[in-house]
């Protein structure tokens, strides 16, 4: 991915985390991960995970905390 494409994923993920960060309780990382699992295609989740593994430049602390909770792509998809 190019820098611009990474930046876009980072921006989107940070936006999502910012919403759940404002919700009451301490489940923001879980809620952020749930949102990403529900609405992001596996390739986008993988790209985000790879970026986080590479240092996660630009990612908010909450996104960084959510990344380990991302679900790997289900393997029961049609071949």
């Amino acid at each position: 991915m190019s820098g611009a494409e990474v930046d876009r994923l980072v921006t989107m993920a940070n936006q999502i985390a910012r919403f759940f960060e404002s919700q009451p309780g301490d489940g923001a990382a879980r809620a952020t991960a749930d949102h990403l699992n529900s609405f992001w295609a596996p390739t986008m989740r993988e790209q985000l995970s790879e970026h986080a593994a590479a240092g996660g430049s630009g990612l908010s602390a909450l996104v960084a905390a959510a990344v380990p909770l991302l679900r790997p792509a289900r393997t029961d998809a049609p071949g």
């Binding site: 529900s38 609405f39 992001w40 295609a41 596996p42 390739t43 986008m44 792509a73 289900r74 029961d76 998809a77 049609p78």
Partner: peptide, 10 residues
Amino acid sequence: DVELDAEPGL
């Protein structure tokens, strides 16, 4: 009669 993808798409 087909298996569907369980992951969200793009």
